[in-house]
Every structure is written in structure tokens, then in C-alpha cells.
Design a protein around this nucleic acid. Structure first.
Length: 335
DNA sequence: AAGCCGGGGGA
DNA sequence: TCCCCAGGCTT
């Protein structure tokens, strides 16, 4: 039932090449060490979603030292979780990780579930992370397809410079066809291919001369043809985006405890300039409102002429300055 | 399927 | 400067 998945390379030879290369060249990453808890592995995988290893390593150590178990993290104040997340990026991941910890505590007896299906149900755990935790924390056989594995298999097996933008069924079937049948071996294969993608078969300047698959790689044999989707592959903009504005506002909120004046945050969101001078003057307010909507900030409406003492109410839902608390000045802080 | 969600460091 | 990084969620 998997017609397109018949191996093009010799399975045993390919496995052996990658496994022995991994044995000789693997990095000594802390979450790969024996006796690393399943929770610690899960935390590493969430942090590694779109954040490079070099930046995750110190953050992971500090995080696990502070919150060694799901119950520890689930009990932590949101503001402290967001501060500990610091600049890893995509702070919504930190919120989901804490939700994930609470679900594990409340519905799984405090233990990280073992099956991909159960893992997939947890907040912030998608197809990749569920497979990675099942494989790396529990030694299970799982198809682990991250950006590294996709690139290595795409090159070696399909002769593609880079994997297509969307992960298709054919690609998944092909990866499954190459997964070693033995569970322990499949785990080493998964981490080995991933490591190969990170260290040798890199996106930018692959070092094919150092690759254990150089003798059989379809892409290398074809003369390393260019990426056919290069034109359609558009990188996300950064400068001048709402994401940049959100990031700047979050940095200010993390830097100091307590309530922040709206004007200060809007100015921060504008990069220190007058928000009115921006191409899109509404951007800082939109960014701030979206942070509140995402649960990354909370707003409170103070009476302007009551010495800031009288609290008119707080909300995790209202947008920046968009409701009718007349005479009330909105202030914000971390949740 | 497409868009959105951070931030930094290496090339 | 540009580009990529152990993705996930929403629409």
C-alpha cells in the first residue's frame, strides 16, 4: 500500500553509514545524556522548535534546574515562566509548555505519556515533537521528520536541493520506509540523520566531502542541482512587522515588574520612536492588543485622577485602549 | 494551504 | 545584508 516508498538506496548500508558516522561525530548535547528525564527531553524539543541548539542549551539547563518536573512548572507564575523563556523567541511556546505541564500533572499522573497519539494531544506538541519525544525519551520507533531530516532524505533519496515547502504524504512514506525495524536502531537512525543535517548536510553550504552518504546521495550524483522552488520560497519579513513590535514590547515587559504605562509600551513597539511617525501608526497598538489577546500581557484600567489607586478592572481579552473606561488609563504587565 | 508567531548569529 | 534554525496553531 506504499507504492512510492520502495527504497532507492540499500537499507542496511545506508543505516550503517549514518550510525557509524553518528557514533564518531555526535555532539555531546545535555538532553542526549543517559538518565535525562522524559520531561527534560520534552522541554528541549519545545525549546528547539525554531530556536538553534546553541541558544537553547543554557536556557534548558537553567529551566530544568528551576522546574525539574511538570508539576513544578505547572505551579509557576506566568510572569516568571515568560522571564525564564527570555529571548528564545515565540513566547507563546512558553505558555503552551506550562499548559502542557499542567495537563501532564492533571491527566497523566505527572508523567510524560509515551505514545505519539497521547503526546500529540498535549498543548504545543505537534507531529514532529510527539515523534521526537516518543523516540528520544522512550526509545520508541517513530518517524521523526524535522527540517534536518527532511533535507537529508530529500537530497540523498530524492535528489532535491531542499525539501518542498509543504510536507507531503509521499515524503512521510519515504521516511517511514527507511526507518530501521529495530526500535533501538531506529532511535539512533533518527538522531543520526538529524545530526548529519545539522553538521554536514546543512542548508547553506553542505560539506558533501565529509558525508557518510556521499557515495550514494542522489543529489550529489546529479551534480547538486538548484532548488526548483527557490522562487516561491519566500522568507518571512522581520523589520517593520508586528512580530518585531511584539518582541520589543515583550522585552520591556520582561525587564521590569509591575504595571507599565501604555505610552511607554507603544513607543517601545515603535522602536523607540513616536508611533505616529511610523508608516503604519496603528501597528504598536495592534501589537500590544495581540499580546493581551494571546495571554502574554494583561491590562488594567486605572482612574487617571484617583492617584492610580482605584482599579477599574483587569482583562485578558480587551484590546489595547479599545474599550470605554472613560477617565481610565490602561496599564500593562506580564500575566 | 497559507499566514502568523521571535530573535540571533553565521555566512 | 541575507538566511536559517529539532514547528505549531489558526483560519
Amino acid at each position: 500500500m506504499v507504492p512510492s516508498a520502495s527504497p532507492v538506496l540499500d537499507l542496511t548500508e545506508t543505516h550503517e553509514a549514518v550510525l557509524s558516522w553518528y557514533d564518531a561525530h555526535a555532539r555531546d548535547l545535555p538532553w542526549r545524556r543517559p538518565r535525562t528525564s522524559a520531561w527534560a527531553v520534552l522541554v528541549s524539543e519545545v525549546m528547539l522548535q525554531q530556536t538553534p541548539v546553541s541558544r537553547v542549551e543554557p536556557a534548558w539547563r537553567a529551566w530544568l534546574a528551576r522546574w525539574p518536573t511538570p508539576a513544578d512548572l505547572a505551579a509557576a507564575p506566568t510572569a516568571e515562566v515568560l522571564r525564564a523563556w527570555d529571548r528564545l523567541g515565540y513566547p507563546r511556546r512558553a505558555l503552551r509548555l506550562r499548559e502542557c505541564a499542567a495537563v501532564i500533572r492533571d491527566r497523566h499522573g505527572g508523567r510524560v505519556p509515551q505514545s505519539e497519539e497521547e503526546l500529540r494531544e498535549l498543548p504545543g506538541i505537534g507531529t514532529y515533537t510527539a515523534a521526537a519525544v516518543a523516540a528520544f525519551a522512550y526509545g520508541r520507533r517513530a518517524v521523526v521528520l524535522d527540517t534536518n531530516v527532511r533535507r537529508v532524505l530529500g537530497r540523498a533519496l530524492a535528489g532535491q536541493a531542499l525539501p518542498p515547502p509543504a510536507l507531503g504524504r509521499d515524503e512521510r512514506d519515504r521516511a517511514a520506509a527507511y526507518l530501521p525495524a529495530d526500535a533501538a536502531r531506529s532511535v539512533r537512525w533518527n538522531v543520526g540523520v538529524m545530526e548529519l543535517g545539522a553538521l554536514v548536510c546543512t542548508a547553506r553550504a553542505p560539506r558533501c566531502e565529509a558525508c557518510p552518504l556521499r557515495g550514494s546521495c542522489a543529489w550529489l550524483r546529479a551534480g547538486r542541482p538548484a532548488d526548483p522552488h527557490a522562487a516561491t520560497r519566500r522568507r518571512q519579513a522581520w523589520h517593520g512587522t508586528d512580530r518585531q513590535a511584539r518582541g520589543r514590547i515583550m522585552a520591556v515587559l520582561r525587564a521590569r515588574d509591575g504595571w507599565h504605562a501604555e505610552a511607554d509600551l507603544l513607543r517601545a513597539g515603535a522602536g523607540g520612536a513616536d508611533p505616529a511617525a511610523l508608516t503604519d501608526p496603528t501597528q504598536p497598538a495592534r501589537a500590544l492588543a495581540s499580546l493581551v489577546s494571546d495571554g502574554l500581557a494583561v491590562v488594567r484600567y486605572d482612574q487617571q485622577h484617583a492617584g492610580g489607586e482605584h482599579e477599574r478592572g483587569t482583562s485578558g481579552v480587551q484590546g489595547a485602549g479599545e474599550c470605554n473606561h472613560d477617565g481610565a488609563a490602561p496599564t500593562y504587565r506580564l500575566p
